[in-house]
Structure formats: structure tokens, C-alpha cells
Design a protein around this nucleic acid. Structure first.
Lengths: 183, 183, 183, 183
DNA sequence: CATTAAACGAGACGGTACGTCATGTCTTTGA
DNA sequence: TCAAAGACATGACGTACCGTCTCGTTTAATG
């Protein structure tokens, strides 16, 4: 038998409601119950298609920032490419996207299965993009690229989570400058 | 007037039970109710002295790693000092301490007041210790020390949270090596 | 839309468990938590449909003694009717029903809203039934029937609460006898 | 050896605070903790001298209405004596005394030991006083005096607890009138 | 007059019920 | 067969009071 097809309308209402609630209440105060009510949807519809709040928001954020996961076009100046890429990346860390992504990382600590999904769909591709940009010549050829990626995104995440300093264009330039001084 | 003094026995039972439960069930599955039961203590005793699970575990972990928050003695070789410090720090990130500290960071995302406490009692002192070690000559004099700290601890936190790679002695040597190549 | 219908099974399990617990532990030692556990039901299900322990037990007792709230068939002998009615009423005051009804009256002292409900669903109808029986000719026509009701049920309640004497068939005959001597 | 004598000041502060709290919050919302705080006394002082809230309030009310427990002087007119006694008794049922006494009766349902104490110190003497007044000739000589007492005080208690009608001078006259019509 | 012992206030202790909340499941009717 | 609605069992939350237990202090009577 065929059955009623999945409602695309309900799906979009849920993803939009989820993001709106994060914006209004903060990631941790969002509940699946609250999302269902805000989306005007049944609770079972949420549980049918997603495992948890984190999965809902991972899908929502993936749709939101999907296109940005590609490395930027090559300009010829490796250092300029790196600065541009970091400025764009760090800029995206503000607003809802930042709040969601930090919340997802927090939730991932409780659930290794979701953590793997988060790495596969969001973190990994972004790492790959940075790797591509770094490989254009901004670093000595013998330097471990993965270590460099850890250092760059590490600083970003550390600041995002610990909030002891801003994640902004200044940081982008400083990190790029630091990498440029490596011999 | 005086009143019955706080029970040091209950306090220690609670902190020990909290750590034991994190070890057994993982940070997120620990509840205040569970801690009280495991410690053989009343629930109100927990609420009397701590605001949340995170505060209990912050105190527990602070007592556990308290002494390590001091910078190591100066050996004369700045690079060796740095490697030694990082090896010790990264080593401590395994076991309960690591699970707790990652959980605390996750919880801090939901509660800015607690985040400030976490920075003040745990993260800040550790940053200061690294700063002291770095200032012994492992870096060019004009490099921003705070940025270097962000880069080093950033890489550590990024790996701890995202779990795409180990936080171990190898990382300690690689990071120290990378810093040593900065001109 | 529809929603899942209320579970009649849960409702009956709760009312039966409540009565059983009163029988076992006494009215005052019954708790909503205990009722839920004994009924194998969620605590929220209790709070969804009732405001308090008293309301649960009022409904339970109302189902138990519901049919008795009607005045008995007229035999032709007003005095015999009265004695029969009182014997039946006073007999029902023993066992669970008596313990529950006394507990309800005690709880009603703390909650005027519930007191009104108790009057409407239990006390009032019983008063009306006695009034009907008394009106059949057991009393002088000019006597205030409500006062007579107060006197009859007052003696019963006084003994039930104060427990200085039994509420039994002997009392039924004595009260009826006293009323019969009024000129 | 001797030890410090019991503080009469603390005792009076407790009894007064208890009555004041009943007046302000109602019997059921008064707690031993609240009484201790309002009296400026330690909690242990309460538990040292009384078993429960009910015992505290029984002592408080006993001091308040103690003198009234005696039958009034004989005037020569039995019916007038009865009316006067009932008017005074029913009048005292208003105000704090009424609220306390109803609360005590409710609590007595849960605790037979306290119920016995209540009967011995408050209810019994009052019954005896009414008995004395009734014995002055307001009733036919062969009528059971205890039954008459049950009927009179029963009506009072029934109205006090069920609150379907007032306990006032009108009731006093009506009850006395009803008794007067018994042959 | 020093000692002693009990009562005092304060307040923390282990318990336990309260009423609320979110979870994830189940059961209806309607599309 | 999916959707919305909403009841279900479960279990943690934070609060309140219970009755008990130290504390340090105060207050007579005793030796």
C-alpha cells in the first residue's frame, strides 16, 4: 500500500520553528514538545522523522549553511584566500548558527552516534574546506595539514565555547598571521 | 548563634559519588537525585550548597586537579618545559577529569553565570599557567601570548569535544614543534 | 482533532487503589504518590483529572455509595421508614466508607472549594433523602425540617468524629424515638 | 543536678504565635516550622514539649477558653439557663477558637491518642457542662441525657464542619425550643 | 563561687511528598 | 499510512516540612 506521503509542509514548519525557538530561548531551553507546539504539528511527527532535538537542529542548520561548506575560489594569493575563508567562517559563527552549532557540540558529548553524524555532516566538510585552502601554499609544505586545521578551528571553538574572547575578523587575521610566520 | 555545622563527611561523600557516577554512567546521565542517593545524603543537602549538577562537579574536579593548576618548575630549556607541561595537561584530559570537564563546558553553554565560574576556577588558571610557560622563551618575543594560548588549548578542546583525534603526548610534541617553528 | 481518549482502566485502578490504601493505612497516610504507585499509573494522570487526594476519594466514595443516596420506598409507617433509613445510613458509616467520609470532612476544613463539592455531591443529597423521609409524617407538621436534619445527622457526625460512642442501630432507634416524642 | 528551667517566655511566645498563625493562614497551613520562626524560638523547643501541631494548639486553646468550661450559675428557669449556655457556647465557636477547634477535630481523625486527649481536655468537660444544665429540668426526666447532649452538640459540630448553616443565637433558641417540645 | 546539667537559639542533616515538566509511546479521529 | 491531538507511564526537577542531630550560649541549682 502507499499511504499518505510525508508532509513537506510539516517538515519545514518544524525546522523553522526549531531555529526560531533557539533564537528566542537559547538552545538548551528548546524542547521537542515546544517545537511541535510552535510548528503546529503533532509530537509523533517529530519522533517519526528525527531521533532528538539535536537531529532536528542539525538538519535545520545544515540547510541553512549548506552552501558555505565549499572552499572559496582560488585567487592566486594563498594568504589572502586563507584570510577571506576564515573571515567568512568566523562571521558565520555569530547569530543563530553559532548558538545552534555550540549546542549541537554540547549535545554530542552525550551521544556518540550523533557526534559521528555531526562530524560527517557539518564539522568534517568544513575541515576539508579549510584543508583545501591551506594546501594552496599558505604553509610550509612539510607541515601536517590536519594539525594546522586543529589549531585554526581549535582556537575558534575554544573561544566560541569558553567565550573568553570574540570570534571575529581580527582573530581571522591574527591566526592567518601566526600561520604565515611558521618556517 | 551557631547552628549545626556543615557536615564535611556529607560534602566529601557527595563529591566522590558525583565523580564515581560520571565514571560509571557518563556526565549527562548523572542526576542530582542519583548523586544524593549514591552519597547516602538528603537531596536538600545538595540544593543547600550547590546550584546544579555542574557546580557539584566543578567543585569535585577542582579538588581533584587543584595542584596541577600551577606552572611547573623552570628547567632552563623552554621547549622542554613546554612539552612537559603539555604532556601533563593532555594526559589529565583522559579519564574522569576529561569527561567531567567536557560535560562542564557543555553545561556552561546553557548558563552564563556558571560559565563565568568555570572560567574563573578552572579554565582561567590553566590558561595562566600555560602563559607562564610560554613566556619562558619558547616563542618569539613579539608574538601575542593569548593568541598562542588559544591555539594550543584550542586544539586540545577541539579534539576533546569533536573526538576526531586523540589528545595525547604525540599532540603535545606536535603542537610544541609547530610553535617552535614560528619566527 | 481527536487525541487519545481517557483510559477508563486507569481511572478505575486509581479509585480502587485509593480505597484500598485508606483501608490499609488510614485516610491521612494516603498520598497521591502512593495511589499512583499502587494503581500502576503515572502521577501526572492523577493530577490531570483530580485536584487533590480528597477529590479522588470523593469520586471513589460517590461511586461506592451512589445508589444509597435515594430515599427508601414508602412503607406507610413513617416511624418505621425513619428507623430503617437511619439504620441503613448509620450502618454505612462503618468500614472504609466511614473512614473516607470522615477524612473528606477533615480535608474540607482546609479548602472551601472542595467543601462545596463535598456538600453538593455527598452531604446535600443525603440531607435531602432524610428530609424526604422525615416529611412522611414522623414529625409535627410545624417543626423545621432542616433543624431536624441537623439534629439527626449532627449526632451521627459528632459521634463519628469524636468517637465517644458508637454509630449503630441502637442510635438509630434512640434518635427516632426522641423525634417521636416531640409534640 | 538542676539544669536550666523551662522558659515560660518561650512557651507563651509559641502559644501566641500558633494562634496568630491560625488566624492569618488557617489551621491547615500552620506548620511547626512556621510557629517556631514566628515565635522566635528554636524548633527543638517545640518538639521538646509538644508532640505535634495539634498538641500545641490544644494547649493554646485550652488556656484561651478554659474558664468557659464551667456550667453557668443556676437562675431558676431551666429553659433560660439552657438558652444562655448555648448562646455563649455557640458564640465562642466563631473567631480563632472555632477554626482551631475544627482543625483539632480534623487532626484527631489521624491520631487516636490525640483524639483521646482532645476529648479529655476540651470536648468532655464541655459535654459535662451541658449535661449539668440539661439536668436542671429542661427535659423529661426519663430522657437519656447523653443522647440529648449528642443531639445538641452534634448539630453544632455538623454545622461547624459542613458549613451549610450558621452556628449562632438563632440556632441556640431553635435547639432549646426543640428540646422543650419533647414529652 | 565554680561546677554541672538542662534548656535555649540556630541551623544542617536524611527523608519524603509535593506539584510541574519533558520524555518517548500509544491510541483515537480525520485527510 | 500519515497527520494532529492528546492521554499514557516514567522519572528528574526544585521546594517544603518533617523529626532528629549537633553546635555554642545561657541559666539556675548544687557542692
Amino acid at each position: 500500500m502507499a499511504g499518505r506521503p510525508r508532509s513537506e509542509e510539516a517538515r519545514r514548519a518544524i525546522l523553522e520553528a526549531a531555529l526560531a525557538l533557539v533564537e528566542r530561548d537559547g538552545y538548551q531551553d528548546v524542547t521537542l514538545k515546544g517545537i511541535a507546539e510552535a510548528a503546529g504539528t503533532g509530537r509523533q511527527t517529530l519522533y517519526r522523522w528525527w531521533q532528538s532535538k539535536a537531529e532536528v537542529l542539525l538538519e535545520a542548520i545544515a540547510e541553512l549553511v549548506g552552501p558555505e561548506l565549499q572552499p572559496p575560489p582560488e585567487s592566486g594569493d594563498p594568504h589572502a584566500d586563507l584570510v577571506a575563508f576564515l573571515e567568512e567562517t568566523f562571521g558565520a559563527a555569530h547569530g543563530v548558527a553559532g548558538r545552534v552549532v555550540v549546542g549541537l557540540m554540547a549535545d554530542a558529548q552525550a551521544d556518540e552516534k550523533f557526534a559521528a553524524e555531526l562530524r560527517a555532516r557539518l564539522i568534517g566538510p568544513r575541515r576539508q574546506a579549510l584543508r583545501t585552502v591551506l594546501a594552496r601554499g599558505a604553509l610550509p609544505a612539510d607541515l601536517d595539514l590536519d594539525l594546522a586545521v586543529d589549531v585554526v578551528f581549535g582556537a575558534m571553538w575554544y573561544r566560541l565555547l569558553n567565550r573568553h574572547a570574540e570570534v571575529d575578523e581580527k582573530l581571522a587575521r591574527e591566526i592567518a598571521g601566526l600561520l604565515g610566520r611558521i618556517r
